[in-house]
């Protein structure tokens, strides 16, 4: 039985570790301290923890002030409030000054479930990757989330970490190499390549096995870093497999799929299909019910794979 844990837990574990190893790390929260797992840091290092109440804009500009003094400021809230409500603060106070502010955006994606559209962040990858100097990471499981958070602390400039609320299956381990910016090939294949991030990496692996039954071999790539994007691995995949599917728990407008297609269309045009939310808001429902409803599962990926193969 696959173990399950939310990616936000990996973030919280990493914050505690960073608190111990790096005295310059400070953690900021906007009244979502338990939910974002910032509470685990607060418990150990209360003097370096700051709560802003429900004031995200204030929090991000204050994080910039900390970073101007050499701190590594982790600012945590729900993804929707970080990327949406405080976008201008992240743009001007954080990105324009290229500061060491690391954003823990939890409760990303449709899998937030019953809270409905107001809380389902489906646009953060788009909103964050358009900002110069920003790095955008979408970890696929708790282990990767922890590694990404720890590396983010020493990675130069602003970093956005997209984290999930629901437990995701654990599919990586700490010994496997992880480097911000380097896509990871999880399965080899020659008929097409499936790029996935977040929970969709697990679904892509399932799709790989199902496609195999149909005689299709799919290369599976974990594209955890959406920006800076691993162009080399994408171009290689396009050249060698000739068709691409992207899978993300996010809108297809400007998201990871768009980022991949920007690379492909400029360098090695091949057919592409994007699995994601199709330019609409979410709605209430149970997490896995919604994932199925919006086609964000292995069935959706298999369907897209078979369609894109016909375009080759």
């Amino acid at each position: 039985m696959t173990q399950m844990k939310p990616t936000r837990d990996g973030f919280g574990e990493a914050l505690v570790e960073l608190g111990r190893t790096n005295k310059d790390v400070v953690v900021l929260s906007a009244d979502l301290t338990q939910s974002t797992r910032a509470a685990w840091f607060k418990e150990k290092y209360p003097e370096r923890f700051f709560d802003f109440g429900v004031a995200e804009q204030d929090m991000f500009s204050t994080a910039a002030g900390f970073a101007l003094c050499g701190k590594v400021a982790f600012a945590c809230t729900f993804g929707i409030f970080a990327s949406g409500r405080a976008w201008d603060q992240i743009r001007l106070s954080v990105c324009y000054m290229n500061l060491n502010v690391k954003i823990g955006g939890s409760h990303g994606g449709i899998s937030v479930g019953p809270d409905g559209a107001s809380h389902q962040a489906l646009e953060e990858i788009t909103l964050m990757r358009v900002l110069p100097n920003m790095t955008v990471i979408v970890p696929c499981d708790v282990v990767e989330a922890k590694l990404a958070t720890i590396q983010a602390a020493s990675y130069p400039g602003p970093v956005y970490l997209r984290l999930g609320r629901e437990p995701f299956p654990i599919i990586t381990d700490e010994k496997k190499p992880f480097r911000i910016g380097d896509a990871i090939v999880l399965r080899e294949g020659k008929d097409l390549t499936i790029f996935a991030c977040g929970i969709m990496v697990h679904e892509a692996l399932k799709a790989h096995d199902e496609l195999k039954k149909e005689g299709v071999t799919a290369r599976i790539i974990n594209l955890h870093t959406v920006k800076p994007i691993d162009k080399e691995e994408i171009i290689k995949a396009a050249k060698e497999t000739g068709a691409i599917v992207t899978a993300e728990e996010h809108t297809v407008v400007g998201g990871m799929g768009s980022a991949v297609s920007e690379v492909i269309s400029e360098n090695c045009p091949v057919p592409i299909k994007m699995v994601g939310i199709k330019d609409r808001f979410g709605e209430s429902g149970e997490a896995w019910q919604l994932m199925k409803y919006f086609g964000l599962n292995s069935d959706g990926i298999v369907k897209a794979a078979l369609e894109v193969m016909k375009l080759k």
Partner: peptide, 10 residues
């Protein structure tokens, strides 16, 4: 807000 962050760093 930026000023607050600087002051708290001090």
């Amino acid at each position: 807000s930026i000023s607050n962050g600087i002051a708290l760093s001090a």
